[in-house]
C-alpha cells in the first residue's frame, strides 16, 4: 500500500502527514507530553482498476462499478486508514498525578479503499 506521498502529488488514495499541537485540539490541559503529534490521514480517489494495490475487498470493486455504471448517487469507495500505530503520552490526572499512557490506533500508517 502507498506510503506518505506529499512529495509526489497524486489524486489517488494516499497517506499524508499532518502535524498538530494538542493545544490546537484543546487537549493540552490533559495531554502534557508530547506537545504535538502527526496523526496522518488518508485522502484521495479510489480508482476501480487499482483495487488490488489497496488490499480492498471484493465489495469495494462492486461498489465502484455501481458508482461508475449504474447509479452515481451510490458513493464511490472512500480512502481510509487500514492500519494504525499507537501513541504514548503523558497525561495529567484529576488527582494531580502524571501518568504515562499508550493510546491505540492514534497514527494512520496505511490507507485502503472501502
Amino acid at each position: 500500500e502507498l506510503l506518505p506521498s506529499s512529495e509526489f502529488p497524486t489524486s489517488d488514495c494516499a497517506l499524508y502527514d499532518f502535524r498538530v499541537r494538542f493545544s490546537q485540539l484543546k487537549l493540552d490541559h490533559w495531554i502534557v507530553f508530547p506537545p504535538k503529534y502527526n496523526p496522518r490521514y488518508c485522502r484521495g480517489i479510489c480508482p476501480r482498476t487499482m483495487g488490488f494495490i489497496y488490499g480492498s475487498p471484493v465489495h469495494t470493486m462492486v461498489q465502484n462499478i455501481i458508482y461508475e455504471k449504474l447509479d452515481s448517487s451510490v458513493p464511490r469507495p472512500s480512502c481510509i486508514p487500514s492500519h494504525y500505530s499507537p501513541l504514548s503520552v503523558m497525561i495529567f490526572e484529576e488527582d494531580g498525578s502524571y501518568v504515562y499512557k499508550e493510546f491505540e490506533d492514534m497514527v494512520a500508517t496505511r490507507c485502503t479503499c472501502r
Binding site: 484543546k26 487537549l27 490533559w30 493510546f103 491505540e104 490506533d105
Partner: peptide, 11 residues
C-alpha cells in the same frame, strides 16, 4: 470505551 477519553473532554 475506545476514544472516550477524548470525546468526554469535548469542548
Amino acid at each position: 470505551l475506545v476514544g472516550s477519553e477524548f470525546q468526554c473532554r469535548d469542548t
